[in-house]
């Protein structure tokens, strides 16, 4: 599904990712854990194709090097990023945004665009599962949403767009335990042999609900250790200090 080879990413003089390598096969769930500032969000942006980075190396997605593709082209090919800090867009109602987005992706995949009626029934169905109130769908995108509402909204979009690779950047931060469970249920419902996940988190507790196949520790822009889901529990006890020292 995804193969990142010798990826270097910098902004101006600042090198953020250095010699970063990662392989994710179809159906796998990978977790990346690491201290603040280690470059996790930058990795997610580089994968999603945000402008403003100097990128060197290869990102193979479904056997195609996507390094030179624009963000919308990558999204249309099936990459989804749940933002750590979802953006507010005043005046643009959620319903309208979600429908435009869904149809843009469907069009790119040569699927039939959905009409208003189909869309509404689809979105309501997903919203209900995620505990999103219907009136929220009629509000401006993320404007005045609480932290939890914003994060659920990200998961809602992921469920609608059905990506091949979903990257979740600290989707668990700022959630209470009930919200955390709902979000985890949303992710688990999407798990399939054809879909892969890259889950970025600080805390092991999300991984109690979403069992990863692999856990990577990221420090200073590269992966310093890889293990199975047990590694997350160890990290929770000993922290990142050991790894930071090692560098």
């Amino acid at each position: 599904m995804l193969s990142i080879e010798k990826l270097n990413v910098s902004v101006g003089d600042k090198k953020i990712l250095q010699n970063f390598n990662l392989k994710i096969s179809k159906g796998e769930v990978h977790a990346i854990m690491g201290p603040n500032g280690s470059g996790k969000s930058t990795l997610s942006y580089a994968l999603a194709g945000k402008d403003g980075y100097v990128v060197d190396g290869k990102i193979l997605f479904k056997n195609e090097n996507i390094v030179d593709l624009k963000a919308d082209e990558r999204a249309q090919r099936g990459i989804f990023l749940a933002f750590q800090y979802p953006i507010e867009i005043p005046g643009v109602f959620m319903n309208n945004f979600l429908k435009t987005s869904l149809n843009a992706v469907r069009k790119a995949k040569n699927q039939k665009e959905v009409d208003v009626v189909e869309f509404l029934s689809l979105v309501k169905q997903h919203a209900k599962k995620l505990g999103i109130k219907e009136d929220q769908l009629g509000r401006a995108l993320n404007v005045g949403f609480s932290g939890g509402e914003k994060k659920r909204n990200e998961v809602l979009q992921m469920s609608l767009l059905e990506p091949d690779l979903a990257i979740l950047d600290e989707t668990d931060s700022g959630l209470d335990i009930d919200a955390l469970k709902t979000v985890a249920d949303g992710v688990n419902a999407l798990r399939s042999p054809h879909r892969s996940f890259l889950i970025i988190t600080h805390y092991q507790r999300l991984l109690d609900y979403i069992k990863p196949d692999f856990v990577h520790v990221m420090v200073n822009g590269s992966i310093v250790k890889t293990g199975c889901s047990k590694l997350a529990q160890e990290l929770d006890k000993i922290g990142y200090k050991e790894f930071q020292k090692a560098i």
Binding site: D72, L81, I87, G91, V92, A104
Partner: peptide, 26 residues
Amino acid sequence: SEEQLFYCKQRGLNQEEAISLIVNGF
């Protein structure tokens, strides 16, 4: 903002669709 445009593009909209959506909302 660039951040708003990136968010829209990440959801599959191209530059012009994104601007049109934001402006029409405005």
